[in-house]
Design a protein around this nucleic acid. Sequence first.
DNA 1: CATTCAATGTATGAGCCTCTCACATCACTC
DNA 2: GAGTGATGTGAGAGGCTCATACATTGAATG
Lengths: 215, 215
Amino acid sequence: MAPTPKGRATYHHGDLAAALVQTTLEIIDEVGVRGFSVAEAARRTCVSPGAPYRHFADRDALLAAAALEVSRRLRAIYLETAADVGSAQERLATVAGTFVRTAARYRGGLDILFAPGLRATHPELRDSTREFVDLLLPSAFEVVAPGDAAVTAVALLDALHALARGYVAQLLEGKFGDPDDVVEEVATRATRAARALVAGYGVSSGPVGEGCGDR
Amino acid sequence: MAPTPKGRATYHHGDLAAALVQTTLEIIDEVGVRGFSVAEAARRTCVSPGAPYRHFADRDALLAAAALEVSRRLRAIYLETAADVGSAQERLATVAGTFVRTAARYRGGLDILFAPGLRATHPELRDSTREFVDLLLPSAFEVVAPGDAAVTAVALLDALHALARGYVAQLLEGKFGDPDDVVEEVATRATRAARALVAGYGVSSGPVGEGCGDR
DNA sequence: CATTCAATGTATGAGCCTCTCACATCACTC
DNA sequence: GAGTGATGTGAGAGGCTCATACATTGAATG
């Protein structure tokens, strides 16, 4: 009968959408995507279980919003780290390592950013990482053989992306041991692998012919 | 009062565990891991909602069992495809492409095989892919510089694994368009990237120093 | 054979979650 | 200062996971 908010002074929250996104990230860090529930997010934000649905169509929409926030933070970190790297080759290689290190810090965050279901249904998540590509494309061009540079540069970035995500996946699932303990080692490996990849795509690389077919 | 099975002749199913695993794979192909529920699996197998819990401790255990089945099928396919590839370099490169193609066919299957939560909590899933590593290690040894061969060969396989999984992730989330349409293209790209990677780790590769530090 | 028993399935239900709907409250505009 | 749209509350329908008590059956045992 008397809708009085429980843990708050005012009836309206103020900025519930943002608060929910923040809370969502915290919950996911604790219990993972599977353990996350909209109800719990509402509880921690001291609103009724139905309130979140005023701002997000469904559970997935809230998760996607949180993932977008992660993407924003990732980009910021990237800009800090890669700006002061000299050669294009090393810049690309460094990105891979940084990506792995960041994954360890944002843990659950990356879980949603790369959750298969979410990315397939929420295109804005894919767009957000595409902006990353634009950031890196110039470096890729510098590194690649001049022939079909445009195609090859993009292909190189896709390969680097694949490589980094694969390492992150292996890191977070504990393949190499406790993630916190092995971050640095894995980041180093990722950097080295990226270096090898870049070298393989590079100008004077004999073994890798261009436009080579499969099998 | 009278527990009569509904869609069956006999009271006991016969091999409910196996049937559930099969049904689970089908459901996941249709609606993804998120959409899967034990209740639905029970329904399709014409048993009561509680029956599956006689065979699997919880939802995740059933998913893990299904993932293991996928892993078995994957290995079979791999053995067919890679056996008749001549050089070690090309064998490794081919694996990456094959992996991507298989991913497109087993779609949902790979979703669970690589579901972050599952792999982290069910070590048998990680073990199952480790057997893959044993299969490939000899090829990796052939390809790698003789110095610290043991370490480098394993590192190369990790890198290849990372690369392939990353491509699969991008493929299945629709980054390149409808998965069915672009499988071949992506598989080719994966193969090429793998080739570049192998070349980068290879014997006479100047640019990639051994034991090189990060940044 | 009759009996027992472990394995397997059913029925029921507690507790949680997602999402909906009618209604309350508030900030803002005219 | 009344109207209005945005935001929150409370209640609830329907579904799911998992636990528990009970029914059924095939196989081993005497």
